[in-house]
Amino acid sequence: MSEYIAQLVDLGHQYDEGSEIFKGVTFNIEKGSFHFLTGPSGSGKSSLLRILYLGLKPTWGNIRLFGEDPLRMKPATLPLLRQRLGVVFQEFKLLDHLKIIDNVSLPLRVRGVEAKRGYKQAQELLDWVGLGDCLMSYPSALSGGQKQRAAIARAVITRPQLLLADEPTGNVDDELAMKLLHLFEELNKMGTAVIIATHNPRLLERSPYPQLQIKEATINVIPNHRIGE
């Protein structure tokens, strides 16, 4: 019997008076699964991820995350659910006043991990993503690709149970994109469920993972998809 990390039932969302971006969305994310989230620009990939990382309240429907109902939880307890998530934001959301090593070790600090241990883990991870020389730099001194990698390092440092990545390879070259995908795969092998929103066709071609495809405000689950098949 599979364990669900996230369950979305008849979910719908509408921004103010605009049109519905989802309606009747129902799908489950199993523990240790790997999905790509695809769809044309503006189809609502980022909005769906925001709903999953509890940054957006859906207009209709139900959602369960790690067996809990976040829509009925008190706002003060939501961070405890978020501590089980890792998020790579499309716009990185690095804190400009903190050094890269502080940004990356921040999720550990928030969870009460000792600073020294947090820095050690952050350093190892930053070395791995090729930012070993930028530990003491501030985000403003980094290129888009470097910020992307730092944001990924911050998202995975806690080995979350569910990793949500919004276009994580949007600002990096193909070689690094594959390397980052490999990082996500390694994390997935350790039990983390991964959902990656992407436009990158090479990424989809290289990795035959199931797709959550947003089309006409609904989601179709396409198992083990390969482009051209």
Binding site: Y53, L54, G55, A76, L78, P79, L80, R82, Q83, L85, V87, F89, K93, L95, H97, L106, P107, V110, R111, R154
Partner: peptide, 15 residues
């Protein structure tokens, strides 16, 4: 914005 980021990565109101 900083507080929003902290909150999204799991910082509790108490933190």
């Amino acid at each position: 914005q900083v507080i929003e980021v902290l909150s999204l990565i799991g910082a509790t109101p108490s933190y």
